[in-house]
Design a binder for these strands. Structure first.
Lengths: 225, 225
DNA sequence: CCCGACACTGAGCAAGCGCTTAGCGTGCGG
DNA sequence: CCGCACGCTAAGCGCTTGCTCAGTGTCGGG
């Protein structure tokens, strides 16, 4: 049982998010695209610190300390603390959007695609809850132009979900009176996983993904499976 | 059409939350229990500031300024900034718990009670989204003992929802495979309203409450109405 | 007309913040 | 073996933070 659904006609090069460390916490491999090494260590430290205490409560000294460096080292790789948050937010949202789009563009019925979407989107929010928490809840700490950029990415996620629901309604699979409202509720439900998920909890990310996929299919009235 | 469901056998003295200002924002009347007047003005100012910028990004000077007072005046009525947050959090959670319990203890079928619960709980999170945002998302800013106290209140909310769902399953009204998981998802869905709700949005708090109540009834498989 | 109680202010303290700068060690091209 | 570019640190600058404290104006009782 693989964690994240492997879609048949997905992208060419897929970094399997669930491989490597099964525990979920030390998601260093997920930031492979960040170079050089010291910059990545700082970024991972920042993700942990931001998720734990929030952006404003985190000091640059704390971030540098977690990365095993002096406070000044941070400013060799990042112009400001806000730039660090932006890099994290950008990469995280790119990843979340890709997960959603891959599911939306995969084959099968609308119900199958929505199931895959919720399953992997929720799975990511649980497995990478540290990243997801920063990405989803520290948006207001970004500067205006950076925030606008991220909001644009979120619109893409929104559109993908609305698309799947609309398709299902068109094909008679779903029965939903308020498509924009239900879209909002579905995404809202998925995102909030990042707030409450704890590593020692009763459920694995995959289990939560499966549970939520079922609940969402009920929300859209997918009675006939 | 009244905003918050008026349960027939509810409590004796009910402060109608939706009365007074229809706009929703200046919820000064909701804090009538806070005295003296200056203490309440400071608390309302703190709610606005915390909701807007977050607890850590808010300065005591900002709070005092919004209340039209000097920074030092804050410390006549509150020992620390954290005590202010605690008072807000305590009152807000008391209110949220009461809303949930009133619905759970009201008469009728499990579906009717769950409908009322989600409708009013969500309605409150939308109408009082400023308060709700602080109450639901600034929990980590509280000191350990204050946080523990609030978490205890949340357990009560959780229990009320689980109770209603369990009753529905017992009576054959609902069909849910995972009661604790579904309980969690329902509360999660409701709480996240406070994150995304904006006053200028397309829907009123009552409309969102109605939409969400319908979605939740689908989640628990309440097919036979 | 005085007096103390009271709610509040102006000024400011110690600590901690984001960020800068001068300098140091190390490794690599010549 | 030199020299310099590079990644990093120690020290610290200017500012803001939560919070304090010596007053100040006001007001009711005697």
């Amino acid at each position: 049982m693989s964690a994240v659904e492997r879609d048949p006609e997905g992208s060419d090069e897929v970094v399997d998010e669930s491989a490597g460390e099964a525990a979920g916490e030390p998601d260093d491999a997920a930031w492979a695209e960040v170079t050089p090494d010291a910059a990545r260590r700082l970024l991972v430290a920042a993700v942990d610190a931001f998720a734990e205490r929030g952006y404003h409560a985190t000091t640059t000294r704390d971030i540098a300390g977690r990365a095993g460096m002096s406070p000044a080292a941070l400013y060799i790789h990042y112009k400001t603390k806000e730039e660090l948050l932006h890099r994290i937010s950008r990469i995280g949202h790119d990843r979340a959007l890709k997960i959603m789009r891959d599911a939306a563009d995969s084959g099968g019925t609308a119900a199958e695609r929505l199931d895959r979407a919720v399953r992997s989107f929720v799975g990511w929010h649980a497995l990478r809850h540290t990243t997801a928490r920063v990405v989803q809840y520290e948006l207001d700490a970004l500067g205006p132009e950076h925030r606008a950029e991220i909001i644009e990415l979120r619109r893409g996620t929104d559109a993908a979900v609305r698309e799947m629901i609309s398709d299902g309604v068109r094909d008679g699979e779903f029965e939903v009176p308020d498509i924009p409202g239900t879209t909002l509720a579905v995404i809202s439900l998925c995102i909030d996983v990042a707030r409450w998920f704890k590593v020692g909890g009763a459920r694995t990310p995959e289990e939560i993904g499966a549970l939520y996929a079922g609940l969402v299919l009920r929300m859209v009235g997918a009675g006939e499976k």
